[in-house]
Simulated scan of single mutants.
Amino acid sequence: MPASGRWRRPLPGFGLGLGIGLTWLGLIVLLPLAALILRSGGLGWAGWARAISDSRVIASLKVSFGASFVAAVAALLFGALIAWVLVRYRFPGRRLMDALVDLPFALPTAVAGITLAAIYDENGWVGQLLQPFGIQLVNNFTGIVIALIFVGLPFAVRTVQPVLEALGREQEEAAISLGASRLTTLRRVILPELLPALLTGFALAFARALGEFGSVIFISGNLPWKTEIAPMLITIRLEEDGGVPAAIVLATLLLLMSFACLLAINAASTLFAHGNRRDG
């Protein structure tokens, strides 16, 4: 501690930078979200019940939540596999593959949707191969899942990859030298270390898929009660006379679910951190 007894900040301008950062965060993120929540709260329970009880709304929520869950699970499995390959193996084109993982982050979602629809359509590169078998991947639930996997995969890869890089191979080699099989090593050594990252990747992919719009509308067909997602129905309700309250309720519901996913991530990370300290 300095002789003056005052705590000295490690970085100059910390207070000013913190104030500017919090101000911009409040104006750009928190203020619009607070306005949405207040507007939805003003509708009352009757307004919420009337909006949510609509059969078309219920159908869109089922499609959105069901497709998001399936896509998040698939993105987690494939993302963990891709992260494992990128970390544990060296091969030609590895850096290109690593860079392509981030492509959905940079690619406009509308462009992604058009591209996916063109590839998996019955006349596309993949669709025409599956057409003779009666398999259709566009204008149905499967097409929605494909689009959501595309946008959610990078979250799974980028949350698991750093943990694998930090884990190294020492613990695996020690377990194998003690007679453990590969399956036992995976279950008792690797998975406990990866579990927080896996849960985080799943939650992020699910939250991202829940609010996805651009990449889905071109491949889903937007059929009411069948392939219409909640974000699409929000847009439709906003264009209808008297449909603004229903759009606000739907938007608030999706917002609350996204926040719930983030809270679950933080809670799970905290629990695993405490568990690791006790085990240590």
Rank of each mutant, 00 (worst) to 15 (best):
E239V: 09
A34P: 08
R8Y: 08
I20F: 15
L253E: 00
F141R: 12
A264D: 00
T159K: 01
E172P: 09
R8H: 14
P10M: 05
I37C: 10
L199E: 09
G66P: 00
S4N: 09
R56G: 11
A67W: 02
M97S: 09
E193R: 12
T227Q: 01
I217Q: 11
I176M: 03
L11G: 00
L167A: 15
V70F: 15
D279N: 14
T227E: 04
Y89D: 01
A118T: 13
M97K: 02
A112P: 04
R169S: 12
P224W: 05
G211Q: 02
I52R: 00
I37A: 11
L254F: 02
L250D: 03
N140G: 10
W125T: 01
L137F: 04
A246F: 01
P12D: 05
F272I: 04
L61F: 00
G168K: 11
F14E: 13
L183Q: 11
Y89H: 13
I28S: 11
G280P: 07
I176C: 00
P104S: 03
G242L: 13
E165R: 15
W7Y: 10
F133P: 04
G221H: 11
I58L: 15
T23A: 15
P245C: 05
I217W: 04
A147M: 12
D279Y: 12
A273S: 14
W48C: 03
L30Y: 14
D121E: 08
A209M: 05
A251R: 01
G243K: 12
S220V: 02
I28D: 10
G93H: 10
T184L: 13
K226S: 15
G134N: 06
L148K: 05
V29D: 07
I234V: 15
L31H: 12
E212M: 01
A175C: 06
A106D: 10
G21L: 14
A83D: 02
L107G: 05
S4L: 00
V70Y: 08
I229P: 06
V63G: 04
A112E: 01
R6E: 08
F69S: 11
A118W: 05
A251D: 09
